[in-house]
Computed example of a mutant assay.
Amino acid sequence: MEGELFLLKDSKGRAFLVRLRPGGVFHHHKGSVPHEAILRAGPGGVVETHLGEPLSVHRPTLEEYVLHMRRSATPTYPKDASAMVALLDLAPGMRVLEAGTGSGGLTLFLARAVGKEGLVESYEKRPHHLKQAEENIRAFWQVENVRFHAQGLEEATLAPESFHGVALDLMEPWKVLPKAAEALMPDRFLVAYLPNITQVLETVRAAEGLPLRLERVLEVGWREWEIRLPVAHPRFQQVGHTAFLVAFRRWKAS
C-alpha cells in the first residue's frame, strides 16, 4: 500500500494525485476519505467522502501524472513531450540524451519510449531541480533505464555517434549544439523545446556549419471540446502556445 499512486476525480472532473500511506486521509473540500478506502475501491472504483461526495479512483496515466506531480520547474507539457518522442522516432532499446532534466516530465516520456532495454542519459546542473526530478520519476516509473547526471551538458564527456536521439530543454541550447551533434548518430534526430521564436532563430543560426539539417519548426495544438448532450462546444479554457519544437537531422560529417 505505502507509496502507491492513485488519481481521484470528483463530480466536476477535478483530479487529485494521492500517494497512499498507512493511516493516511485524503481531504477534499466536500469531505475526507481514508487511504484504506481508496485502496479497497481500487482502479475503476468509487469512494465517497464522509459528506457523501463521490470520487472515482484511477491509476494515473503518464499525462495525468506529469500534470499533477510536484514541480521544481515548468514541465514540458504532455502534448509537446509526446510530439518530441514522435519527432525523435524513438523505439525500445534506443539510447537518448536529454538536457536539462527539469521536473522530469519529458524524461518520463523518453524513458517509456525506449523501454527497459533502452537508456536515457539526463543532464541537469541545478541540484534542486535534479532532486525533484529523481523523486518524480522514481515514484511513477520503476524501470531502471534513466541515468542522472548532476552537471551541464557543456561539462559532459560523450562518445561520438553514441545516441539515437537528443532532446534539449534549455534556455540557450546553441551553447551545447556542437557537442550534442557530435554525440548523435548519423541520420538521427535532435529536437529542441524552445518557448520563444528568438531562441528558435538563434538555435537555427548556431546549427550552420554543423552536421545538422533543419527538418521542421512547429507548435503543437491541443483543443479540447466540452460535450453536454445535445450541446457541444470548445472548452472555454484552452492551452495556448507552450513552445516551439525545432527538429534537426544529423548527416554524416565529411
Rank of each mutant, 00 (worst) to 15 (best):
P22R: 14
R147C: 05
P173I: 09
L20T: 14
P60N: 06
D187E: 15
E144W: 03
S11F: 01
I137N: 02
R213S: 14
V231C: 04
A86M: 13
A181Q: 05
A247M: 08
T76Q: 00
I197L: 15
L168R: 06
P92K: 08
G31T: 05
E4H: 05
G105P: 01
G100F: 04
H35Q: 11
E161W: 08
I38W: 03
P54T: 03
A111D: 01
T198Q: 07
F140P: 01
E215C: 12
S32F: 11
E36Q: 15
G102Y: 06
P43H: 09
P186L: 04
R71L: 15
P22T: 13
F163H: 09
P54M: 03
H164S: 07
G209H: 11
G105V: 03
M94N: 02
P173H: 10
S82A: 15
L184R: 03
L17F: 05
L5R: 14
E161A: 13
A207G: 09
A156H: 06
D80T: 01
G31S: 09
L214Q: 11
L184D: 10
R59H: 07
L168W: 09
R188H: 10
A180W: 12
P230S: 07
L7G: 01
L97I: 08
V200P: 03
H27A: 13
V176A: 02
V57E: 02
E219Y: 07
K30T: 03
G152H: 05
M69F: 08
G115Y: 04
S122Q: 00
L55S: 06
P173Y: 06
V57F: 00
P60E: 01
L106A: 14
Q151M: 14
R112D: 02
V217E: 01
P22Y: 10
K30R: 14
Q238S: 04
L87W: 12
E208D: 10
E135F: 14
F189H: 15
L106Q: 11
R40L: 06
H233P: 00
R126F: 09
G3C: 07
H241D: 12
M185T: 06
A81F: 06
L88M: 07
P78H: 06
E208A: 15
A37L: 11
A247Q: 13
L229V: 11
V18H: 12
T203D: 02
E208C: 05
L177A: 09
R40S: 04
D80Y: 08
S103G: 10
L177G: 06
F244T: 12
A73R: 05
S82K: 13
H233F: 08
P92C: 06
K252T: 15
V47R: 00
L194C: 05
W251N: 10
T49E: 01
R228M: 04
R19W: 12
L184K: 03
E117G: 08
M185N: 04
L119K: 11
L229K: 01
L170G: 08
A232T: 12
L210C: 04
R40M: 00
